[in-house]
């Protein structure tokens, strides 16, 4: 845990302040909303079964990317905030499960020399913190399963710019896989009431490929339309754990739509020094 916090802290420090370079570094930002299919299983909520609950999931995904000074500006920083909520039911239609998750990830990618014109290849690592719940409407003393994860991920991205007729398009694919981290989990059969009695040992577990496999496949296509850039996306998210006798999976396939933009942020002292480059409604 300490190593990951230190790692994240260090890269954050390195990533601050772009100095007084002539061309300001812009921030790439997009916000998308999405909807898709959800598939849940949690054997804390349905012990000794392998029943999947299926339904829909809605999400909001915000992304920011920016070049940073590291390695002579060959590194970019990516921040992702994802909020999702889903509703599912069992095959017989007699019970519902609701789930909600929120996560934030901070990643740094090294940008390789483009192998082809218009193609950018990036690889790096990210840290993600996430939390959420799965709630079953049918249950007695095991109604909800809480989730909290802290992960270190491997991350790779390919961005390809091309034209169809005269329309410039940008296609992106990103894959992210956690390789080590920590997660919270009660033990199989352990009621949350038990935690209220003071014994909270054994709740935090080291996670890696032996007990957790998660992955995100993220596709986007940017289409400029008039003065805006529309972003179409597809997010395939997998989360599978087998920890403390509890098997969980949260799977989703979501289609996303939103807007992407580039902007240059001025704040603090740079507001004054760059006063000739903007017309503010506030300052």
């Amino acid at each position: 845990m300490f190593i990951s916090i230190w790692l994240v802290g260090c890269v954050q420090l390195w990533g601050q302040s772009t100095g007084a370079e002539e061309i300001p570094l812009s921030t790439h930002e997009s916000t998308q909303i999405g909807i898709g299919g959800y598939n849940l299983r949690d054997t804390y909520l349905s012990p000794s079964t392998n029943i999947n609950y299926t339904g829909w999931v809605a999400r909001v995904l915000n992304e920011r990317m920016k070049m940073v000074r590291l390695a002579d500006y060959r590194v970019s920083r990516q921040q992702l905030i994802n909020v999702e909520f889903g509703s599912t039911r069992n095959g017989a239609g007699t019970a519902r499960e609701y789930a909600g998750f929120i996560d934030y990830s901070l990643g740094y990618h090294y940008r390789f020399t483009p192998p082809l014109p218009g193609l950018k290849l990036l690889a790096g690592a990210s840290a993600r913190i996430s939390g959420g719940f799965i709630y079953n409407t049918r249950n007695s003393n095991n109604p909800a399963s809480g989730k909290a994860d802290l992960d270190l991920n491997l991350s790779a991205m390919a961005i390809y710019q091309f034209k169809i007729k005269q329309l410039p398009l940008t296609l992106r694919y990103q894959a992210e896989i956690p390789f080590a981290g920590m997660l919270f989990s009660v033990h199989k059969g352990e009621p949350y009431y038990y935690l209220t009695q003071g014994n909270r040992s054994g709740l935090v577990h080291f996670s890696s490929f032996h007990n957790k496999f998660a992955m995100r496949n993220y596709f986007t296509l940017d289409i400029p339309v008039s003065r805006v850039t529309i972003r179409l996306g597809y997010l395939n998210s997998m989360y599978r754990t087998d920890v403390a006798g509890i098997q969980t999976h949260v799977l989703s396939n979501s289609f996303l739509i939103g807007f992407a933009k580039e902007f240059v942020a001025f704040s603090g002292k740079r507001l004054k020094s760059n006063a000739h480059r903007y017309r503010s409604a506030f300052y």
Binding site: S46, P47, S48, T49, I51, N90, G91, A92, G93, T94, A95, N136, R138, N139, S140, N141, N142, G189, P191, Y193
Partner: peptide
């Protein structure tokens, strides 16, 4: 303290 689970036909068991 009772827990719950379910059967493949949707019946709940406590």
């Amino acid at each position: 303290l009772p827990f719950s689970s379910e059967l493949p036909n949707g019946w709940s068991v406590r």
